[in-house]
Amino acid sequence: MKVNEVPQDNAFLQEETEICLRDRYYALDEEGKFREVPSVGWKPKNAAIQFAWNNREEEADKIREQVVQGKLSPLAYHMERLLMTPAILSKYAGLSRRKIVRYCKPKYFSKIKPEELSCLAVALNINVEELISID
């Protein structure tokens, strides 16, 4: 890769943030020496990230449908949306994995204790009202 070929395709990085995240490429200059060039992104990489997220959203929408039909609880929807799995969430929330799998069913979710509900909300970085709704 030549210095003038370093891609600058921004998709996700905000310009004005204080920390100013950047990639950095090692590219060849005209004399065949490596130079460091900061970059804001590259299309194929952005496409891969975007694809993974779009897919996640589609999966979450499917689960949302099932929540509407009363087959799953809102917890299942928020977990899918926020990239959580029962195993990881159990570590963050301090509840057993088994319990979290149970709470994905409406029957058990309706009987959840308030403390456990707030534990889950904190672990998911959302508030309790959001956790019990699917908007």
């Binding site: 990639d23 990489k45 891969a48 990230i49 694809f51 993974a52």
Partner: peptide, 21 residues
């Protein structure tokens, strides 16, 4: 495939999975 590309190019490899670096 997306996972492979992300690992190859995600912030921090200097391009092409450290090959340039």
């Amino acid at each position: 495939l997306a996972q492979v590309i992300r690992m190859l190019e995600e912030i921090g490899t200097g391009g092409a999975g450290f090959r340039f670096m």
